[in-house]
Structures are given as C-alpha cells and as structure tokens.
C-alpha cells in the first residue's frame, strides 16, 4: 500500500503534498485535519518535508513498520532516479529533449505547489471569511511570508516563532 506513496514521490518537495494528501484521504488513513497537523510536525523536523510527512503518516497508520515502509517507498524512487541519471549524465545533461521536458515540467510543478498552498489554507480556515480566527491566521501567514522573502529567515524559526505566538493568542 505504501508503494503508492513511493511512486508519487517523483513530484518532489512541496509539490508532493497534494499527492500524499490525496492518497491518504482516499484510503481513509487520516482526516484532513490530522493531515494538516502531520505536515506541521514534518516541517519542524530536519529533512525534506514530503519525506517526513510520509514517514509520519506511515507511523500513524502502521506503527514503526508503517514508518519504515513509507520511508523506503519515498527514498527508493529518488535512489533509482539518481542512479539512472548519474549513469547517463553526460549524454543527458545537454540533451534538447530533456531540456524541453523540463521546460514543460517546471511550470506544472509551480502550479502544484500553488495548489498545495491553497488546499492547506482552506483546510485550516485561513480563508474562512471575516472573523477573528481567519484574520489572525492570515496575519501570521502574511508576516511569515514577509519574513521569508524579505529577510530570508530560516523556515524553522518561522515555525517555532509562530508556534509561540499561537500559544499566546489561542492558548
């Protein structure tokens, strides 16, 4: 079952979140809310967020064995891909076909990440309308984004600081 997550991992990074979410919801492994929490925790851990989310989902669904299965499923495609590309490296790097493929692939990934952001915002009521909850969440979002773009602040700090702010506002 975790093989499916492994296969979708070709999307990479944040682009993968909608895929993982989709599979997880279809299978009924987690609720939307639980999934948001999983991603929040995954963002706090070292390592790639998508891999972390998958491990967490695996752990929740099937304990340690599930985590191992999800982890292996996420890593193996990466390994195979790198080995494949590494062995063809010099032939492929300046290959026009590959460049053309990436030319088309990159904007799709942008779309996917944008979609991930919207999904996530909807799931946790960031766009829920005009009320204290949505407005305060939107403020946290806007300040975080500003800090990321303007000051290139480390993502971990953003998460930790917003967590502390959260305890004060909502606690």
């Amino acid at each position: 079952m975790f093989l499916i997550i492994g296969f979708v991992s070709f999307g990479g990074g944040y682009a993968m979140l909608p895929m993982i979410e989709r599979e997880v919801l279809i299978k009924g492994w987690l609720s939307v809310e639980e999934f948001s929490n999983v991603v929040a925790i995954a963002g706090m851990s070292p390592g790639p967020i998508a891999t972390n989310s998958a491990i967490f989902v695996g752990y929740k669904v099937g304990g340690i064995a599930g985590a191992v299965a999800a982890g292996v499923g996420m890593v193996v495609p990466s390994l195979l891909l790198v080995l494949l590309i590494a062995s063809f490296f010099f032939k492929v790097h300046h290959n026009k076909f590959v460049q053309a493929a990436f030319y088309g692939l990159r904007p799709i990934i942008t779309g996917l990440i944008g979609y991930a952001a919207i999904r996530f915002a909807m799931n946790n009521h960031l766009l829920g309308g005009v009320n204290w909850d949505s407005i305060s969440l939107f403020l946290i979002f806007a300040i975080s984004l500003f800090a990321l773009i303007k000051f290139k602040i480390h993502p971990l700090f953003v998460i930790v600081i917003s967590g502390i702010v959260g305890v004060f506002i909502y606690g």
């Binding site: 942008t110 996530f120 969440l137 979002f141 600081i161 967590g163 959260g166 506002i169 909502y170």
Partner: peptide, 30 residues
C-alpha cells in the same frame, strides 16, 4: 490545549512556507 494552540498558528506559517516555495519555484519555471 497549548499544543493545539501552537499548531493552529503553525499551520498558517506552513502555508507561508509553501507559498514561498511556490514563489521560489516560479523564478526558474516561469
């Protein structure tokens, strides 16, 4: 309750992280 409160806020900043990733990605993609 404290953990729930923290997570509630963190989820907003995760959205910011994703939007930021999208913005970064855009620069090479578009």
């Amino acid at each position: 309750p404290k953990v729930e409160a923290a997570l509630h806020a963190i989820q907003a900043s995760i959205v910011a992280l994703i939007v930021y990733a999208c913005y970064s990605n855009m620069k090479t993609a578009i």
